[in-house]
Amino acid sequence: MHERVNPTPPRTEAAGGRVAALDRARTFITLSVVLYHSAINYTYFGQGGDRMHWLGFDLVALFNDSYFMSCMFFISGLFVPASLERRGASGYLGRRALRLGVPYIVSIFVIMPIAYYRYYVAEDQFTTVWWRMISEGPWPSGSAWFLGVLLIFDFVAALAWAFAPQLIDVLGRWAGNLLRAPLTGFLVFLVIANAAYLPPHLGFGDGLWFMPGHFPLPLQASRALLYPAFFIAGIAIGAAGLRSGPFAQESALVQPWAIWFGLSYGCYGMILLLAYAHHNWIADFESPPLWWRAAYGSAVASFCASMAFGVPTFFLRWARAPLALMDRMQPSAYGIYLLHFLPLLWLQYLVFDPAWPAAVKFAIVLVGTLAVSWGAAALLRRVPLVARII
């Protein structure tokens, strides 16, 4: 578990031992989330609610939705071993409760009710709608569901550390040895991703969500095993050492970053081909045959796996590239994730009636959402207590 720390940290390291390239990767995923939510309202085949559509937004939404949350869980897992070693199980859980639990509570009781009130603004007063959400449901979680699920994963990881600390060490040694041959390691990861995704995907489909009562902690049934699998894979690679292990800047896993992206775009091409076949060649659209569902599920799982390698290794390989805007956004990225649903839904509401082209509405929603949520997050971070949390 103990890493070999170089006397002179590479430029990928920020103050406090942070890996700046991985911070960029997390910021990129946050931008992907905002991009997806800004585009989804203007899709043909997605959840578009606006009458103005453009097929290009279906491609954007499908691309992002197919990979970004599994990649987020993977990247989150990378930092677990070092945090546990530094803080211990109880200190780690306390920190995660502050960083995840408090924003989750604020999100489901304040941010999301205000955001989703835009659907009820013509029907009733906010306080009446708020109480109905809390007491009867539906109680929307928006993007906050990720915080609740990640907190559960962190709790399990802390328990494992407390009662079987050697388990994470074993995962780290296994990952370190396996990824000395990156293609072999990727094939193993590919098998794990497919094994975690295909059975629930075939059994439940992609439309079912698990939710305890009407409490806002939903989890997509088809990804109920995929997310913990990616989180554990991140823990394993993190336990091998972020500075001297598979994700070291000059490692054999990072150098072929273009291969991982090439594989990911090949998998995405397969997703598009299968989606085209579904809409044009399969007679029963509502009940596609088993071969199609299996092929589509495998393409999605493989896309997730290749992007989980591709995104972090890209930013690690090009850590010295000037990305000034992303670096300025990085301190507020978590706040943007937490806050973006509020301006997003109200901007969608404000541009709903005009018969403007979908691209114009999308641009207004995307730019406005980023500007408002980034500005609000930056202002909130000026409060010392809030800065500790977000």
Rank of each mutant, 00 (worst) to 15 (best):
P228W: 07
Y36W: 10
Q255F: 00
A196Q: 11
S70G: 07
R173M: 03
S90D: 10
P218T: 14
F155E: 08
D284K: 03
R24N: 15
L342T: 02
I364M: 08
L273Q: 14
A299G: 03
A195R: 08
K361P: 05
I389R: 03
P256I: 00
V300L: 05
P113I: 05
I168W: 09
R132I: 00
W145F: 07
W209M: 13
A277V: 15
L323Q: 14
A14M: 07
M72E: 07
L78D: 05
V372E: 03
G56T: 00
A162E: 14
A162K: 15
G335P: 11
M69C: 05
N177K: 05
L62P: 00
V311I: 12
G172T: 02
I105V: 15
L338Q: 04
M72D: 08
F309E: 00
P343D: 02
C267A: 14
L366M: 03
F186D: 04
S298A: 13
T8H: 14
V383I: 08
A376H: 04
D206S: 12
G94D: 05
L22T: 10
Y116A: 03
W318R: 15
G77D: 09
L325T: 06
A122E: 06
I105M: 14
D353N: 12
W356A: 10
E13C: 08
G262P: 06
G205A: 06
A89T: 03
A363R: 09
E13V: 14
H340N: 00
G269M: 15
T43H: 02
M52S: 13
F230P: 09
G101L: 13
D154E: 13
R4I: 11
L198E: 06
G238W: 11
A158L: 10
P256W: 01
W260I: 00
W131Q: 13
V106Q: 11
I134C: 04
V386N: 06
S107R: 00
P140F: 09
Q249M: 13
A181M: 01
V80R: 07
L187F: 06
I271L: 13
Q348V: 02
Q255S: 01
P289F: 10
G297K: 06
Q220N: 10
G207T: 05
L208G: 03
F314Q: 01
Y116D: 11
L190E: 12
A236D: 12
A21N: 07
P343T: 01
Y197S: 04
P246Y: 02
A115L: 02
L316Y: 05
R180V: 00
D353H: 08
Y265S: 12
V188D: 03
D327K: 12
P199G: 12
I390Y: 04
P7A: 14
P289E: 14
F314R: 00
T128C: 02
G238R: 12
D50M: 11
L370F: 11
D327V: 05
W260G: 02
P343V: 00
G335Q: 13
G375E: 09
E123N: 02
G241F: 10
L35C: 11
L22E: 10
A258C: 00
W130P: 12
G176F: 01
K361Y: 07
F57H: 06
S107K: 01
L272H: 08
D23R: 12
Y265W: 15
V170R: 10
I111R: 04
M307R: 05
N64H: 07
